[in-house]
Computed example of a mutant assay.
Amino acid sequence: MVKDIHKELSLTTIFVTHDMDEALKLRDRICIMKDGKIVQIGSPEEIKNNPENNFVKLFFKKGEVNE
């Protein structure tokens, strides 16, 4: 439903989740945060290919299990 609304209305949407599978399904870009601070922003492909640090690498890998 969120994806349909985004597409139909051409609005920028911000969706907050701790579920990487959900983020990967709804995303154009992903923002990874740790301790309230932005660690990395980018497309899933950018983050996967160039993780900023080990935290991002491990966090992003969690979503690959069910892709």
Rank of each mutant, 00 (worst) to 15 (best):
N54K: 15
F15R: 07
K37H: 13
R27V: 10
L24D: 11
V16L: 02
P44F: 02
R29I: 14
K34Q: 15
D21T: 12
I14A: 05
F15T: 06
S43C: 12
L26I: 00
G36C: 10
K48Y: 10
Q40L: 05
P44T: 02
N54V: 11
M20F: 10
N53Q: 05
E46T: 04
K48P: 01
V39I: 15
F55G: 13
G42S: 05
N54W: 04
I47K: 04
E52W: 02
M33C: 08
I32Y: 09
I32R: 03
R29H: 14
G36W: 09
I38H: 12
D19I: 13
V56I: 00
R27M: 06
E52Q: 09
Q40K: 06
D21L: 11
M33Q: 07
D35T: 10
D19M: 11
L24N: 09
N54I: 11
G36V: 09
I41G: 06
I14L: 11
T17F: 12
H18G: 14
I30L: 05
F15M: 10
D35V: 10
S43W: 12
M20S: 08
I41M: 10
M20I: 15
P51K: 03
N54A: 13
K37S: 14
M33R: 08
M20T: 11
F55H: 13
I14V: 13
D21G: 12
K25F: 02
I38K: 15
D19F: 11
V16G: 00
T13Q: 08
N54Y: 09
N49A: 12
I41S: 06
D28M: 01
E52V: 05
G36E: 10
E45V: 12
G42E: 04
